[in-house]
């Protein structure tokens, strides 16, 4: 979402998704996360948490995050439920990358629109998310400047990888 927000501000056409079956937010302890389904709006989550322990969730920034999110879009979306086509999909965790590919492969082959899926590992915390947003923006800007993304993506990913010094996964899917 951080990246979504950041890219939107830069003028990109962005959508953000989750790939799990539910939306999980940190709870009072790791064993007791707050779980919502995809129909819950950010606003409802915000209010729920505010009610549960406003101090804790202000402290760990969750409320702030939800506040940001609810101003971007009403509720979280699940990737597996969308049928839209994308030029580039960026994931921030290898597990998610796998899920995306699995989903795309299992989709019924339609118009065969090529989509590049790129994974860059970003830990799920606020600092990393901020850095990650910059990195993703960087990558996306590079891709955007390419006239022929299909041809250049390999090179760009390589350059990007050497720049951020993190392992990058990249593949193409037709959907």
């Amino acid at each position: 979402m951080e990246a979504h927000s950041f890219l939107s501000k830069k003028g990109f056409k962005v959508q953000s998704f989750g790939t799990g079956s539910q939306v999980k937010l940190p709870g009072p302890s790791p064993e007791r996360p707050n779980i919502y389904d995809f129909n819950t709006t950010y606003d409802e989550m915000y209010k729920d948490l505010l009610r549960k322990d406003s101090e804790l969730y202000t402290q760990n920034g969750i409320l702030h995050m939800l506040d940001r999110n609810r101003r971007i879009k009403p509720r979280p979306e699940r990737f597996q439920n969308t049928r839209e086509q994308f030029d580039v999909i960026v994931s921030c965790e290898e597990r998610v990358y796998d899920q995306i590919i699995e989903d795309l492969e299992s989709r019924e082959k339609g118009d065969s629109y090529p989509t590049h899926i790129i994974n860059i590992d970003i830990q799920d915390n606020h600092e990393e998310a901020t850095i990650g947003a910059f990195m993703i923006c960087d990558l996306v800007t590079m891709l955007h400047h390419s006239e022929d993304i299909d041809n250049d993506v390999d090179e760009i990913v390589q350059v990007f990888e050497s720049r951020v010094k993190r392992p990058i996964l990249h593949t193409i899917a037709f959907c």
């Binding site: 090529p114 022929d148 993304i149 299909d150 041809n151 250049d152 993506v153 390999d154 193409i172």
Partner: peptide, 8 residues
């Protein structure tokens, strides 16, 4: 020579 074209 174009990677994308080959892919297609």
């Amino acid at each position: 020579e174009n990677d994308g074209i080959r892919t297609h």
